[in-house]
């Protein structure tokens, strides 16, 4: 059973549709017991950073999730904003504390000097820089769908497995033990997106 974390943000149904297509059972929930019983977790998300943390706090999910991920080592995949929330802080519309599972900061494209249109919307490349679990069977020229105005600063991280370029090079994916994160939307990136998702569902380990 795959636990899709419901915190009132994000395209939960699309993520569930992709998981179902791959032949896995899923549940969309904010119930900690149910999430504890799930084999793996997915934290989706579309929206603003502060909003995301506020909603996780409102539903009392911050501590229980940290316990499941950091102590029980349950595999978790963060998608887009969900991935960004793993960081210790975000700067979207002011300073916001993140979940703090990965020791880095979420920064704005504009502050980084990006002059191209923001948000970065559309199909873009992925430079796989480190062998990992998520990109097995994904060809080098595969494209993925991105929608975001902020990015995870990869400089302090050891587990960056792929980057993408949009005026600046940013983190497209990380794998740090049981913690997996992708900036693009695998559930919206056609067959290669589904491959990434399948790799997480089948191969990720605690």
């Amino acid at each position: 059973m795959i636990g899709i974390i419901d915190y009132g943000l994000g395209n939960l149904r699309s993520v569930a549709g992709a998981v179902e297509r791959l032949g896995f059972e899923w549940v969309i929930t904010d119930n900690v017991k149910t999430l504890d019983g799930a084999d793996k977790l997915i934290l989706p998300g579309v929206g603003a950073y502060g909003d995301g943390m506020r909603k996780l706090n409102e539903r009392g999910l911050v501590e229980p999730l940290s316990d499941l991920v950091l102590n029980d080592k349950k595999p978790i995949l963060g998608i887009c904003l969900g991935f960004q929330l793993f960081a210790k802080e975000g700067t979207e519309f002011g300073y916001h504390k993140g979940l703090g599972w990965i020791d880095t900061t979420v920064r704005s494209f504009r502050d980084g000097g990006v002059t191209a249109p923001v948000p970065h919307i559309g199909w873009n490349d992925l430079d796989i820089c480190k062998t990992g679990t998520l990109f097995k069977d994904v060809p080098d020229d595969a494209l993925f769908y991105y929608v975001h105005s902020y990015y995870v600063d990869g400089a302090p991280l050891t587990g960056v497995t792929a980057t993408c370029h949009y005026d600046l090079t940013f983190t497209a994916a990380i794998e740090l033990g049981n913690i997996y994160g992708v900036q693009f939307h695998p559930e919206k990136s056609q067959r290669h997106g589904l491959t990434v998702l399948r790799n997480f569902l089948e191969k990720s380990e605690a």
């Binding site: 549709g17 769908y145 919206k188 056609q190 067959r191 589904l194």
Partner: peptide, 11 residues
């Protein structure tokens, strides 16, 4: 709903 469950591109 039908499209969302069967199409894995942005809608």
């Amino acid at each position: 709903e039908t499209f969302a469950s069967r199409c894995f591109v942005p809608l």
